[in-house]
Amino acid sequence: MPQDPPLTNEDVAALADYARIALTEGELDEMRAYLNEAMALLDPILSYDLSDVEPTFHPVGGVCNVARDDVVVAGLSLEEALASAGGGVGRYFRVPAIMGDGGAS
């Protein structure tokens, strides 16, 4: 199997930006080294011909159709909901300016 090209600092910066984890320049180097070392550890996966193998997304398979009845269950009070959100405003959770974030909707 051909190897994937090693990640560059630019790749890692894009990844960190996507995953919302700010990295300093030094951390960027360390992270690139780590990711390339970790990727090399995964090589055994690439050595298989898996064309006829079904994936197992859920271990201890065979269980399907697990659902619950449409019945209301008491949830959290407003105080409990907001208890850990230090920046709440009145009845709301609060975030600073979003524009430029580019969410999916």
Partner: peptide, 28 residues
């Protein structure tokens, strides 16, 4: 001043090194 900045710094300073490594490996 922005949400993206708040999230990225909160996660950078809230998580330790290994938690960040595993998440970036997973995202990749």
């Amino acid at each position: 001043s922005t949400l993206a900045g708040q999230s990225a710094l909160s996660r950078a300073h809230g998580f330790g090194a290994e938690a960040k490594r595993r998440q970036l490996l997973g995202a990749h």
